[in-house]
């Protein structure tokens, strides 16, 4: 009689545990065995009720009877369930022997579900998982601001260029930006024979020759980038032979190379002009350039 009265009072929106959502009406009471709001599952509207609750991985069978309805703090009797599934089932059968069959069935189902999710929790604990971390906006903004200022202070392009120039001076690229030693020696001998050098003049001339060599080598690399090394060697051999034979064909080749780059056309045109002016100096300059 009192169960029916309670149910009629709380059924229509008078229960604080009721949760109505689009998928159905649910119950938030922790003692509810199924989580659904209906007459048979309501722990308030049933004076004789049982459920299973979980405390830190240990399951307890909670039982409520009408004889203790007048003692709220002793209303629920608690029995610890063993960890083993079969033994827990036996305990439930023993304690709920004379209870309604439907209720016993629901409690057994609840035990099955909770056992399974306990096992799953244990497995997940052993797996490696990504850790979710916060990224506060203020920290991010500060980080970006400081990075911008550091980038301005770094002056990356300037530093890289100066670093590469220093390496060039120290001779890290010695093999690439100079002619092979044989030709270099011949050039030095030519200079010695033709002109009586002083120390200063020697230094200046050497610097100039190195510069030209770098330019020529760079052009070669750019033009014949795709060809293998063997071809380059063959080309060099051909050049040396032609040098010995004639002077004029050598003068033509740099024109062809220079046409690829616009900046070089002006420079080489200047050289040609100087060649035309004086006959005696022409021979010397041609040899030095080679």
């Amino acid at each position: 009689m009192s169960d029916d009265v309670i149910w009629h009072c709380i059924r229509h929106n008078h229960c604080s545990f009721m949760a109505k959502i689009t998928t159905g009406i649910f119950c938030r009471n922790p003692y509810n065995a199924t989580g659904i709001c209906n007459r048979s599952s309501c722990p308030l509207a049933n004076s004789r009720y049982a459920t299973i609750r979980d405390h830190d991985g240990i399951f307890y069978l909670y039982m409520k009877t009408a004889e203790r309805a007048h003692l709220p703090n002793k209303l629920w009797e608690r029995v610890k369930l063993p960890r083993n599934y079969e033994k827990a089932m036996e305990v439930i059968n023993k304690h709920l022997e004379f209870w309604p069959k439907l209720l016993v069935h629901k409690i057994k189902q609840r035990l099955t579900k909770m056992t399974q999710y306990r096992i799953r929790m244990r497995k997940l604990q052993l797996k490696v998982r990504e850790k979710v971390m916060t990224m506060p906006r203020k920290e991010t903004q500060r980080h970006l601001r400081r990075m911008d200022k550091a980038e301005k202070a770094a002056q990356l392009e300037k530093n890289i260029e100066s670093e590469l120039k220093e390496r060039l001076k120290k001779g890290v690229y010695g093999d690439i930006y100079n002619y092979p030693f044989k030709e270099f020696d011949t050039i030095l001998e030519m200079e010695k024979d033709d002109v009586a050098p002083t120390e200063e003049e020697e230094e200046e001339e050497v610097e100039y020759v190195e510069g030209d060599d770098e330019m020529d080598d760079m052009e070669d690399i750019e033009d014949f980038g795709g060809l293998p090394d063997d071809d380059e060697d063959d080309d060099n051999d051909g050049e040396t032979d032609e040098d010995d034979l004639l002077d004029e064909p050598v003068a033509k080749k740099p024109k062809g190379r220079g046409s690829d780059l616009r900046s070089n056309i002006g420079k080489k045109s200047k050289k040609l002009i100087t060649e035309v002016e004086r006959d005696d100096d022409m021979g010397i300059r041609r040899r030095t350039r080679m």
């Binding site: 550091a150 990356l156 260029e161």
Partner: peptide
Amino acid sequence: QRDYIFFRHHRYIFE
């Protein structure tokens, strides 16, 4: 620079 490591990748040429 100031604990930030800036990465850059360049091709270069001497002139």
